[in-house]
């Protein structure tokens, strides 16, 4: 069975080594009917840490990060985000959601709103930010993701890569402490993947705490502080990129890596 090997990371960045856990999950279970998607997951993430989650489809990796902002409700266990426990208290949930940004595989931009309004909607409606401030913030974020000239277009007028960068800007507009990425490049044409990964890499360097579900091994190797391998709702193995790509311990990890590398 799964032995949760917590290999001590040899090359942990200084800032992480001293940081506290910002995400704490203890014994989390999630069931979809008779299917157990998450089986007793305990996984903590430190502030500023970049965690890349790998695993075959159906392994529970997406379900796991979707539990972290309660797009899925966990059935058992405990989830604490930045000191706030996830429970039925709506105030807690709103506090958590405004600290956790999420980027989806299918972008999920709002097609009836302009790029500008996609980004400013959250700050204005949730944070009650004045329109002028929100617009200034959005302009700044669009510059950060490299498409300031697209502010007045509608999502359908943008390429996939541009849409995903707008989606990142939209999540950042809430000024979250944590960013979750659910296969952010899987729906993109190959030539657009890099522009999105570049934005994510810049974000990682800026000190954001990130959990990234992806199949982009180059990104995982270069940017991740820690890789976590999911299979059948369990964390099978975790460790540094070096550990993973050069010396994986578990058979299932080896098999998975041999299939996608």
């Amino acid at each position: 069975m799964s032995s949760e090997t917590t290999t001590p990371a040899p090359a942990v960045r200084e800032e992480i080594a001293q940081a506290d856990d910002i995400i704490i999950t203890e014994n989390v279970d999630k069931w979809f009917g008779d299917f157990q998607a998450l089986d007793d997951i305990s996984l903590n993430v430190r502030e500023h840490e970049i965690v890349v989650v790998l695993g075959p489809s159906g392994s529970g990796k997406s379900t796991f990060i979707r539990c972290l902002n309660r797009l899925e409700e966990h059935d058992a266990g405990k989830i604490v985000i930045d000191g706030i426990e996830m429970n039925d208290d709506v105030r807690n949930l709103n506090a958590i959601r405004s600290e956790v940004g999420m980027v989806f595989q299918q972008f999920n931009l709002f097609p009836h709103l302009s790029v500008m309004n996609n980004i400013t909607l959250g700050p204005r409606k949730v944070r009650r930010m004045p329109k002028l401030d929100a617009d200034a913030l959005a302009t700044q974020l669009l510059e950060r993701v490299g498409i300031p000239e697209q502010a007045d277009k509608y999502p359908a007028q943008l390429s996939g890569g541009q849409q995903q960068r707008v989606a990142i800007a939209r999540a950042l507009a809430m000024q979250p402490k944590i960013m979750l990425f659910d296969e952010p490049t899987s729906a993109l044409d190959p030539e657009m993947i890099k522009e999105v990964l570049d934005v994510m890499q810049e974000l990682a360097r800026s000190g954001m705490t990130m959990i990234v579900v992806t199949h982009e091994m180059g990104f995982a190797r270069e940017v991740a502080d820690r890789l976590v391998f999911f299979d059948e709702g369990n964390v099978v193995e975790q460790g540094t990129p070096q550990h993973f790509f050069e010396n994986p311990q578990e058979e299932r990890t080896k098999l998975f890596l041999s299939q996608i590398l």
Binding site: N108, F110, L121, K125, V126
Partner: peptide, 30 residues
Amino acid sequence: LPHGQGEAAHAIGLSQLQSTQLIVMPQALR
């Protein structure tokens, strides 16, 4: 409407009412 619309609305912190009023209903009516 794709499920993702409501999820994205929740992910940026909109309440159920706001999500319906600002995201879901305008698109559904159209």
